[in-house]
């Protein structure tokens, strides 16, 4: 039995999305969000949307992670949930 690669990526995406909103530290949350974006980029490539994959890799995984880290640097890492 061969499991298609997109099913594996979909499971990993759900796991990382849930991890991003449950970790008790905002910096980890930002970094897991970057990993989530890279997994999505893989999924777009599998689905043939190359332009969307390129945009997701540069924007989602690159710049938005930097924005999150910059914002957390000036506020606080602490969170209750």
């Amino acid at each position: 039995m061969i499991i298609p690669i997109d099913l594996i990526i979909l499971v990993l995406i759900i796991v990382s999305a849930i991890a991003a909103i449950t970790v008790p530290d905002l910096l980890s949350s930002a970094v897991i969000l970057g990993a989530y974006s890279f997994l999505l980029c893989l999924l777009w490539t599998v689905m043939g949307a190359v332009d969307v994959a390129f945009t997701e890799a540069t924007v989602g995984a690159g710049v938005s992670t930097v924005f999150c880290v910059a914002a957390i640097f000036h506020t606080s890492r602490r969170t209750k949930d």
Binding site: I21, L26, S29, C68, I72, T75, T79, K80
Partner: peptide, 12 residues
């Protein structure tokens, strides 16, 4: 409860 967590939710 946390505002940054809410923003992460918005991105998802």
């Amino acid at each position: 409860n946390n505002l940054v967590k809410k923003i992460v939710g918005m991105v998802i």
